[in-house]
């Protein structure tokens, strides 16, 4: 097609390519404003809190910080937090793998209901996640009397904390694995079987290498929540210092006692955990993207 060439009467600025470009991109001033709003928002809501934690933790110097951390109550809280994570994360990881395997590799009745039920704990308020265990195992709960008669303590003791944490971190691993394994399909596993691999070899040599980054991702998020859970644990723990206080509970107790340095020193450990989690998470996302 040949265009009829006419002397241009229009000014240069409104030639079609410029018009289209301006319709595809925001003007510079708007771009800068939007970036400024976004970054300002992120700074105020996300960066500032991290800085404040450090500021108050070290407000009275490094000595006071270490003193606060080395207190027996703080150390006991750290220990309990680690213990909780050590029990709950492996348990929920094992569950996540089993659930993802059952759901993505087989057809059965009620599969979508099962998938929904697995996600259930995410939509339950943390406080309610604690309450249900009090209702089961507390003094007025269903098993309260029996437990008292047999001298077993669950609520206001470590088992209760672990149960509540298991509940709130329940879906993390399964939720990472299910969509990935669904998308992967099972051709590679069938190939391994057709080549004569045993079930375990198929799992460890083919399935696991393929899901490892997503699995680690789920474990990471599960661990962060297990160590940081507050609401559910606070309901079942009873806040006994040195015994049933996890680190987040210790932060609360110290803060309410106006031990600012103590509260923020403990908080700094948890904030550090959060930052490490974010860094690892970003690395894992990068790994998964590169796969």
């Amino acid at each position: 097609m040949h265009a009829i060439v006419q002397p241009s009467t229009k000014p240069l600025t409104s030639n079609p390519s410029t018009t289209i470009r301006s319709a595809l991109q925001e003007p510079l001033w708007l771009k800068i404003t939007l970036i400024a709003i976004a970054l300002g928002f992120i700074f105020l809501f996300l960066c500032l809190p991290l800085l404040i934690v450090l500021f108050h933790a070290f407000a009275k110097g490094v000595g006071a910080y270490w003193e606060a951390i080395l207190q027996p109550d703080t150390l006991a809280a750290i220990k309990l937090t680690l213990l909780t994570a050590l029990v709950t994360v492996p348990a929920n990881t094992l569950f996540g793998i089993a659930a993802a395997w059952a759901i993505t590799r087989f057809e059965f009745r009620g599969k979508s209901l099962l998938t929904t039920l697995i996600d259930l704990p995410f939509s339950v308020s943390p406080v309610i996640s604690g309450v249900i265990f009090v209702l089961l195992f507390g003094m007025q709960g269903y098993f309260g009397e029996w437990l008292r008669d047999h001298d077993i303590k669950i609520v206001f003791a470590i088992p209760g904390i672990i149960l509540a944490t298991l509940f709130v971190t329940f879906p993390f691993v399964a939720r990472q694995l299910i969509p990935l394994m669904q998308e992967m399909g099972n051709e590679e596993e069938e190939a391994a079987l057709s080549l004569g691999a045993s079930s375990w070899k198929m799992f460890f040599k083919v399935t696991l290498p393929n899901i490892k980054w997503a699995l680690l991702y789920g474990v990471l998020l599960c661990n962060a929540r297990a160590m940081g859970e507050f609401g559910a644990v606070s309901v079942v723990s009873g806040h006994i210092r040195g015994l049933t206080n996890t680190l987040p509970l210790h932060v609360e107790v110290s803060y309410n006692d106006y031990q600012t340095v103590g509260a923020f020193a403990s908080a700094s450990i948890l904030a550090g955990l959060a930052v490490v989690t974010l860094v690892l998470k970003t690395l894992l996302e990068w790994k998964q993207g590169n796969r």
């Binding site: 940081g228 507050f230 904030a271 959060a274 974010l278």
Partner: peptide, 26 residues
């Protein structure tokens, strides 16, 4: 950009008790 994008997940990772006392303090 990558840094700011990564930090958006902070509320997922930061224990709520810590968020609570920090926001109260600010």
């Amino acid at each position: 950009r990558k840094f700011f994008d990564a930090i958006i997940d902070l509320p997922f990772a930061l224990p709520t008790a810590v968020a609570g006392i920090v926001l109260a303090t600010i």
